[in-house]
Amino acid sequence: MVLGIKGDILRIKFFSIASLYFFIFVSLIMGLVMGTAKDRQAYIKHFESPFEDNRIEIGFQYYMYGFELLNIPPQLSIIITCVLTYGILSRVWLRYVNVHWVASLLIFNFFMFSLLNYYLGTSIRMGLAMAISLYSSYKYMDGKKFYLAPLVGAFVLHYGALLYILVFLWFIFTKNLSVKFHIVMSAIGGLLLVLFFDLVLPSIGLSSYYMAYFETDFGRTERLLPFTVLFSIAAIWLTFLYSSKSKLHETSEILIVSLYSLPFIIYFLYSGNPLFGKMLMPIIFLQSIIVTNLYFRPVLVLLGGPLLISILLLLNALAIIYALKMYQYI
């Protein structure tokens, strides 16, 4: 097996066939934690009565209503939704990651069950909304302009998708400007966020459910920094540490978008507020793609193919154990 080959039709076929195995595996995991995962019982009730809770976004209510019309049990509906999120994100990963399909699958699966397990199996509607927004944005960048509609429409599945939607719309209008411009704007954006949420937000009259993020300890963690924020900071540092401009150019589109995690990280470091850390999931997913593309081959040369695959298998096992712990199964 030769690792690091260029993407081609054969790689796509292999990725699709191998992904089927992981889709089955995701179904088994989500079925296994059906009685233990946080918010799972709440989601079962939501799927049983799609329009009962008015805090659920209208788009997701109709999404759940579709399963009700098809007479699909809530538990199976949840599993299908989790697999759909996994599947959509795998297509985005395939579009941008250019490493051997075996390693690509293992790295993707590792990120999904470690860094992003919250969005795969806990915050189900947020995960689906953000997967759709990511998929729609890459299709838009491939020239399919009508994908702007589902990109914006992801907002009605979960309001948390708004952050990525706004960042991507900003990217559309400024993508021809230099990376230096985006770095400066992201730093300025961090300062503006601090001013806005300290001085302006309290006078808007936002719903008490969302204001709880700003006025109470709702959603806060005792950890100094959540893993997602730590990874985002590390990804930005690793990206600019890389010396090959040609490699950076290969991911220039998503590199620019990923820079806009900086304003929200700055605000998080200033306030400790967890809201934007959760909403950064699409950008953090893009950062995992950038780091994989930049560092896979140097690591491969350093370790060799067999050892690298062995390490990736071990990391996958640890990620799944960690996810089961987060889903309160173990």
Results as ranks from 00 to 15, higher is better:
K144C: 08
L308D: 05
Y21N: 07
S261P: 02
L120Y: 10
P263T: 11
L94N: 13
I17S: 03
C82G: 13
F22L: 04
I72V: 15
Y164I: 13
M34G: 07
S133W: 13
L286V: 06
K6P: 03
Q287E: 15
S258N: 08
N117W: 00
M126E: 14
S136V: 09
Y138Q: 11
H182Y: 14
L241F: 12
P298F: 03
L70Q: 08
I266T: 14
L206D: 05
R40L: 09
V92Y: 10
M141A: 14
T122K: 10
S243L: 06
G189N: 08
M185R: 02
V83E: 01
V156Y: 14
A317K: 02
S186V: 03
A319E: 01
A212N: 06
Y118K: 12
M130P: 08
L303N: 01
V102E: 02
I165R: 11
L105V: 01
N109W: 00
H46A: 10
K180F: 05
K6T: 11
F268H: 13
F173L: 14
D53V: 05
N98A: 04
N71H: 15
G121K: 01
Y213S: 04
I79L: 03
V102N: 02
I266C: 07
Y135H: 11
K6V: 05
R125S: 04
Y140G: 04
A129H: 06
V167S: 07
L151V: 11
A212Q: 10
S77Q: 13
Y327C: 00
F111P: 00
I12H: 04
H158N: 07
F67L: 08
T292K: 11
I284H: 10
L303Y: 05
E57V: 02
L28K: 13
G59W: 04
I265T: 06
G7C: 04
V167Q: 05
Y295W: 15
I183A: 12
F196Q: 01
V83G: 01
I256Q: 10
K325N: 13
V152Y: 07
L206H: 03
K245N: 07
L201A: 10
K278S: 14
K325D: 07
Y135Q: 05
G219P: 10
Y327W: 05
L313H: 03
L318F: 12
Q287C: 07
M279E: 06
K38E: 11
L116M: 14
W170F: 13
S77W: 09
Y147D: 09
G7S: 14
R297Q: 12
H158Q: 10
F285E: 13
L308S: 07
T85M: 01
L255V: 02
Y140I: 05
F181S: 08
G127P: 11
A235L: 12
I132T: 13
L115D: 00
I79D: 02
Y63L: 03
K6H: 08
I311R: 06
Y267F: 15
I254W: 02
R55K: 10
I204K: 09
